[in-house]
Amino acid sequence: MKDRLTSKSSLSNFLGRPFKVIVLAIIVLAVLFPLYWLVINAFKMEQEYFARPPIMFPHHGTLQNFSEIFQKYKLPLGFMNSFLIGSLTAIFTVFFGSLAAYSLTNGFLPRRIKEVFAGWFLIQKMYPAIVIAVPVFFVISRLHLMDNIFALILMNTSFNLPLVLLLMIGFYQEVPYEVEEQSMLDGCNLWQRYACITTPMTKTGLVAVGMLTFVASWNEFLYAVILTIVRAKPLTVIIAGFITDKGLAWGPMAAMGCIVILPVIVLMWAMQKDFISGVSAGALKG
């Protein structure tokens, strides 16, 4: 289809159409080529990924790298850890976050409390997680939660709550207040209104927020590397370990990379619209 010459396309051809085509082609290539490279390396044999010149278009593949990470690098345990950290964090964040967001929107709290939470969002956006790493390390070891995925679930819940609260307050505000009033007159208390009436109306939003949280906790690395030793290591820590202490095991490393990246890409594809609006809201409302 030919582009109609509308004003949007004239804005889009701002620097001239040929230049635009070149720039966009380079960018698409720069995004896709590394991912292609990762995938083909995951299926190469050991002598192949060190081949000179590198093999760009392999004719045959092997699953050897995948079976190696399965046996040698504790893939099942790591996957389980990552999955549990991601999904339990999402569940806790959505549950606690929605309770608090509901209370802040429709509950009876002093106005100041709400301002405190808005402030917290800004503060957490600003301060790097690293600044509390050392004290958290102490608190977690005092609580005997070292090398326990619960510690990571707790920390990830804390990191994701501000954005979740912010988004969910928005969802609850979209529900007409008449719905609240009517159910109040029907004699529902706050919990009943939350659980049976208002929250079900925000279901799609909750799912989207849950997925954002899942992705963020699945990808988290800093606290994962500080708070785990052996049993609780998620995939991000295992993949970093390939570089720091296992030398250049590129095939298994690439295979592991595929497993870290793939679920996130699938999720993103499924919820692209919510993802973009979540990202923009996180940036722009704050």
């Binding site: 590394p34 490279w37 990808n219 490393m253 996130v264």
Partner: peptide
Amino acid sequence: LVPMIIAPVAAGTLWRM
């Protein structure tokens, strides 16, 4: 959207390679 959602650790490993 892909680069911004994948784990930074994975992106780093990929480019390290």
